[in-house]
Amino acid sequence: MWTLLNHATPYLREGHSATTGAYIVITKNQIDLPEETPAAMELNLEAALPPVALSPASVLDGVRTVFGLNISETAEVFGITRQTAYQWMKLTDMEQVRAHENRDRLKQLYGAAQLWQNLPSLKGRWLYALLPAGNTMLDLLKAPQIDHEVLQTAYQVLVASTADRRREEGERATQAATALTGAFAGLGAGRKARKGIS
């Protein structure tokens, strides 16, 4: 970089290749770039990045983490049994998943998880919250084809209903605690009655 910034050095046009295969050309003292830059000069960062090696185990783990799924729910959304889900958690290569449709499902859910993880976290039991269509987020994840636009719409609905959902969950928790308190009080009274204590 010093040679490019130092006016005493002669004009140089150098290119350097990175491990990603991207080629960057830095030009010193260039003025008046044309308004329409040729497509060859545009840098596509996504194309320049090396492909990420995914394994069935990493996809399952990522999907479970992003959507907060337990093992049974994970098996449901992938359309496999719990036993198969446990087996996939040990696999290191996509080619180890024999069925083509299962590999496609892994890719679909990986894409959904990538989309979802870039959104701010939701609070409460949003996975089972009813959406306007009468289904839940879990239902959307179990659909044969996952629609990213539908997921984004569901996210917006869930964000809008977060306060109501948390209030309802708080009310249910209070009711459950009250019921337990009453049940324990009844047990204590019954024990005293059996022992003849008034």
Rank of each mutant, 00 (worst) to 15 (best):
T92D: 09
A47N: 12
T92N: 15
T3R: 15
F78P: 12
A8D: 04
I71H: 15
T74R: 12
T27H: 15
G21Y: 08
I24F: 11
S17K: 11
P38Q: 10
I31E: 09
K90M: 03
T37A: 12
R13F: 14
P34K: 02
M89L: 06
I80C: 10
A22G: 07
R64E: 06
S58E: 03
L45I: 09
H16F: 12
V77N: 14
N44R: 02
G79E: 14
L49K: 11
G79P: 10
T37R: 14
T74Q: 07
G68V: 00
D93K: 04
R82Y: 11
L69E: 00
R98N: 03
T20F: 08
V52W: 13
A40S: 05
D32I: 00
L4R: 07
T92S: 12
V66K: 09
V77D: 09
R64H: 03
R13Q: 14
V52S: 09
S58H: 00
Q96M: 10
V63I: 01
G79C: 13
N70R: 05
F67V: 00
T84G: 15
E76C: 06
G62R: 08
S55I: 01
H7D: 15
Y11S: 14
D61G: 01
Y23F: 06
R64V: 03
L54E: 15
P51K: 00
T19W: 14
P50F: 10
D32E: 03
A8P: 01
E46F: 11
E46R: 05
L45G: 03
D61M: 01
P34W: 06
E14M: 02
V25C: 12
P56T: 01
V97L: 04
D93A: 04
M1S: 13
F67N: 00
T27N: 07
M94A: 02
P10E: 05
S55M: 13
E73G: 02
I26V: 10
L12R: 11
A57Q: 15
H7E: 10
T27R: 07
K90P: 02
T3L: 06
F78L: 11
A47R: 14
D32L: 05
R13A: 13
E46D: 10
L54T: 01
E76G: 08
A18H: 12
A40V: 11
L4W: 03
L54Q: 09
L54R: 06
E14N: 02
V25S: 02
R98L: 02
Y23A: 00
T65E: 01
V66W: 14
L69C: 03
T9H: 10
A8C: 09
W88K: 05
E36C: 08
L60K: 03
T81H: 10
L49T: 08
L5D: 13
T81R: 07
T84A: 13
T84Q: 11
A85K: 08
F78R: 10
A39F: 08
Q87H: 07
P56G: 02
T81A: 06
D93V: 01
Q83Y: 08
V66P: 11
I80K: 05
Q87P: 05
T3H: 13
A47P: 07
F78K: 10
N44T: 06
T84I: 15
A18G: 14
W88S: 15
T84V: 11
